[in-house]
Amino acid sequence: MKINGFRYFLREASKNVFSNGWMSIASIFTVLASLLVFGLFMVLTLNLNYIAGQLEGDYEIILVVDETYNQQQVEALGETIRGVENVKEAELDSKTNRLDELKDEFGENASLLDGYETDNPLRDWYKITLSDLSRSDETVQELEGLPGIVKIIRNQDTIDKLVSMTTYLGHISIWVMAALALISVFIISNTIKLTVFARRKEINIMKFVGATDWFIRWPFIIEGIIIGLIGAVFSFVVIAYGYHGIIGLLESLEISFVDFKPFHELVLLLIGTFLGMGVVLGGVGSLISVRKYLKV
């Protein structure tokens, strides 16, 4: 594309956005509405994944330590466990500590536990969390091989449910977002079709003067992209304010048992996705709607 040509396209496109006044505003609102639904879903999915990730990350597996191990050996074992791949954290829950907790639990019946201090039958525990819960099997296998670990306590059922829920969410969200994007392109191409229809004479004149198809397409595509970008910026602002508001409200009510994804972690992804979607929706929408009028 020559510089002359590009300037011409840009000038034509921006002129058309203005001269089509209401039509442009209608298209911008279409993009805005589509992206709001899309964005809402995206934020929801991101948070569900975030929460699922938290649940996964918080899920504890208990490693029971050989009771013949002395304190030094236990601590050394701790280092080895932390060195195992996929282990996020490993926390020692010592037998003395657990005995104290047990006593608290028994309360006035604590006398049952008399004599435990001198000969504690309880065993040291390491409570570990994993970075990726879906790979728990191989990690557990590796841990089982470590000398000093006599037993591993985990609830495979719960793990499986958690893992399948998060993968399921991931799949669903991809499909729903793809469907929403498709619907948006369809709606936007219909709106832009009206502006193309209003200018079909112009397109026809361009054709018989000898304009190439791409020369005719570019201004419409750029017009679509401009409209898409404006719609994207507006919908981003709405989503951003809405997110802040809703999260603030939920946190002030103090009913949330889980954390939501903090906004600053979302912002780049949101901006990128919205601008990208705006460009694609507008551009592809225009491309589709101008196609019919080029066949002369």
Binding site: K201, N204, I205, K207, F208, G210, T212
Partner: peptide, 24 residues
Amino acid sequence: KQNQIPYLRRSMGVVFQDFRLLPK
């Protein structure tokens, strides 16, 4: 071919009964 047609049309000027000017 379809993409060569514009260049054919550039070798000819065309005038119609209804002028076909851009009103704006």
